[in-house]
Design a protein around this nucleic acid. Structure first.
Length: 424
DNA sequence: TCTGGGGTCCTAGGACCC
DNA sequence: TCTGGGGTCCTAGGACCC
């Protein structure tokens, strides 16, 4: 059996820990640039505010005091997430962290009769020790556990824990679950299935396997199996990420090539830093940029370019150098750019870097690695993880988040010494 | 005026090999 | 007139997730 632990309205719940006056109020957390709604309290859901709604469409509520908007504060959410996960890790032999606000607990070897009590205990502990409300769904497969957690969240009677542990319960749960709410059935396939008469999860499992394979291919068959209680969603993969992306939308559109170059340098340096933190190195660097796709009155341009490195690298100098090379092949004058980003790929463990036959720069490379270590050491003493005390001359001066709108930002309650002193 | 960011996997089709 | 058969690898695009 698996237990899916899911934090309720996670980002909103994080904000409420340090601002209890938001309890019981309609609250939303906004994406970068205060662009879209990415987390909603039950009260704001009840007002009909949908996930992904652009903030300007609901700003009226906020102006009237009916809605509280917070800019996102990922340093805070990451820190709270770590606290939740450590409580979970102490409670059972094995957990799989699935996302910032979800984890699967493996319940093998635990007496099934004791599972409900164990789960209720976890709900109480996370609430009391970290301050975040969670719901738990228990079932023989991950997809069913996800459905169970929806019921646990939706109906107060479950007191935060719902178990699908019999054929009767599974059958009933599937009949009450809209096909669009099934994990693995996305926004593309849901309307397709509805049009073919599949309205609930139960309708879906009643179709033959070949029918599912024909319309939804292999991933659909896996979901179909999981809903019938046969586990086939993979265990969490060990090891490093296969790609790392740093990208941002800009508060204002950028037309100046120098300004855009500085942003791209910043994104590349951030990718390089993430590589070094993970102990990996990248073999290729991709740069992309977008004009504002919502402005139909403006010319559109969505270019991207990839530069392969002769030898995998993770120093800011090399990653930024490659990014600027890619940038120069795609930049065109005359467009108003709204977003840009850097993706590093071809990632390997840093200690497995294979130098090329034609790599005459080995000594230079050593120097860059040493310099990177010093830069990391100095920058890690900064109070915010986004601030770069030391940077390349091609990067922007000032704070990493400058030029990103965040008008409703909460304090860095748990990650900035100044703020911690203020709160206490 | 204003519309997020970061990942993974699968498949089809093209390029290439013999 | 008529143009093989079988395989691998890579990539772009599309689907999904949070």
């Amino acid at each position: 059996m698996y237990a899916l632990v899911d934090c309720n309205n996670f980002f909103v719940s994080c904000e409420r820990i340090f601002r209890p006056q938001l309890e019981g109020k309609a609250v939303v957390v906004l994406s970068n640039n205060d662009g879209c709604v990415v987390s909603r309290s039950n009260e704001s859901k009840a007002m009909g505010i949908k996930m992904g709604t652009p903030f300007y469409q609901i700003k009226g509520y906020a102006d009237k005091g009916r809605l509280y908007a917070c800019s996102s504060n990922y340093a805070l959410y990451g820190d709270i997430s770590n606290r939740v996960m450590s409580v979970l890790a102490d409670a059972v032999p094995k957990i799989e962290i699935y996302s910032i606000d979800e984890a699967y607990l493996h319940l093998d070897g635990i007496d099934p009769a004791k599972v409900p009590e164990l789960c209720r205990d976890i709900v109480a502990k996370v609430r009391k020790w970290v301050g975040v409300p969670v719901s738990i769904g228990v079932a023989p497969t991950k997809t069913l556990a996800k459905i169970a957690s929806h019921f646990a969240k939706k109906y107060k009677g479950y007191r935060g824990v719902c178990m699908i542990d019999s054929e009767e319960k599974r059958h009933k749960a599937l009949s009450l679950t809209d096909i669009a709410d099934v994990w693995g059935i996305g926004r593309r396939n849901a309307p397709k299935l509805l049009a073919m008469g599949v309205n609930t999860a139960l309708d879906f499992v009643s179709r033959p396997e070949e029918w599912v394979r024909k319309h939804l291919h292999l991933p659909g068959v896996r979901t179909w199996e999981e809903l019938q209680g046969r586990a086939c969603v993979d265990e969490e993969k060990e090891g490093h990420r296969k790609s790392i992306c740093t990208s941002r939308s800009f508060a204002d559109m950028i037309t100046d090539v120098r300004e855009l170059e500085l942003r791209v340098s910043d994104f590349a340096a951030m990718c390089a830093r993430k590589l070094r933190e993970e102990g990996t190195a990248a073999g290729e660097v991709t740069v992309f940029m977008y004009t504002n796709r919502f402005r139909e009155d403006l010319d559109q341009y969505f270019p991207s370019a990839t530069v392969k490195l002769g030898v995998a690298a993770n120093s800011a100098q090399e990653i930024v150098g490659a990014a600027l090379k890619a940038f120069r092949t795609i930049y065109r004058d005359g467009y108003k750019y709204k977003k840009a980003g850097v993706i590093v790929g071809g990632i390997i463990e840093a200690d497995a870097i294979q130098s090329s036959l034609f790599d005459f720069d080995e000594k230079l490379r050593d120097k860059q690695d040493k310099l990177s270590k010093v830069i990391d050491l100095v920058n890690s003493s900064a109070t915010s993880s986004d601030a770069s005390l030391l940077r390349l001359a091609t990067q922007r001066p000032g704070h990493y988040a400058d030029g990103i709108r965040c008008d409703f930002r909460s304090g860095l309650y748990t990650t900035s010494l100044d703020e911690i002193i203020k709160v206490h």
